[in-house]
Computed example of a mutant assay.
Amino acid sequence: MLSDKEVDARNLNCPLPILRCKKALNELGPAQVLKIMATDPGSKKDFDAFCRQTGHSLLEMQETDGVFTFWIKKRTA
């Protein structure tokens, strides 16, 4: 999946991956896509909850060898 920005939050524990995500989304325009990689097992629940609470769209999540990759589309309003 294509993205407009990529953030590497591997080897960081909660809440740092979410904070990096929030900062990166603030730098993007409406409807742009952020790709973020994390290794914290709790990040699956964290990013799902973050997107539901903030109105961003969690487009996809993949797990490969303990690395969780999320594609998040920034809300338009």
Rank of each mutant, 00 (worst) to 15 (best):
M37V: 10
D65C: 06
H56Q: 12
R52Q: 15
A38M: 12
F68M: 03
E63W: 00
K35R: 14
T64V: 13
T39A: 09
K44I: 02
T69N: 04
F50C: 08
S57F: 09
G55Y: 07
L34N: 03
L34I: 10
V67A: 10
V33P: 03
G42Y: 07
A38Q: 09
V67H: 03
F68L: 04
D65G: 03
S43G: 05
E63L: 02
K45T: 07
S57R: 10
V33M: 10
I72F: 06
G55P: 08
G42V: 08
D48Y: 05
Q62V: 14
K44V: 03
G66F: 14
F50R: 00
L59G: 03
L58H: 11
F50W: 13
W71G: 06
H56Y: 12
K73M: 12
T39C: 04
V67Q: 06
M37T: 10
G55I: 06
S57D: 11
W71F: 10
P41C: 02
S57K: 11
E60T: 03
D65S: 09
H56T: 12
V33C: 11
D46R: 09
L58W: 12
T54F: 08
Q62Y: 14
D65T: 04
G66N: 15
F68S: 03
E60V: 03
S57G: 08
L58G: 05
P41H: 02
I72W: 03
F50T: 05
F70R: 03
K73A: 09
D65R: 05
G42P: 04
K35V: 12
Q53H: 15
R52M: 15
P41L: 00
K35T: 11
I36T: 02
D65E: 14
K45N: 08
D40L: 04
M37K: 05
T54L: 07
C51V: 14
P41F: 01
D48T: 07
T54W: 08
F68V: 00
G42Q: 09
K45L: 07
K45E: 09
G55H: 07
G66D: 15
G66V: 15
T39R: 00
F47V: 01
D65Y: 13
L59S: 05
R52F: 15
R52H: 15
A38T: 13
G55T: 07
M61E: 00
Q62T: 14
I36Y: 01
V67C: 09
F47E: 01
F70T: 07
L58I: 11
R52S: 15
Q53W: 14
F70P: 04
F50I: 08
L34C: 10
W71N: 08
A49K: 12
G55F: 06
G66P: 14
R52C: 14
A49T: 13
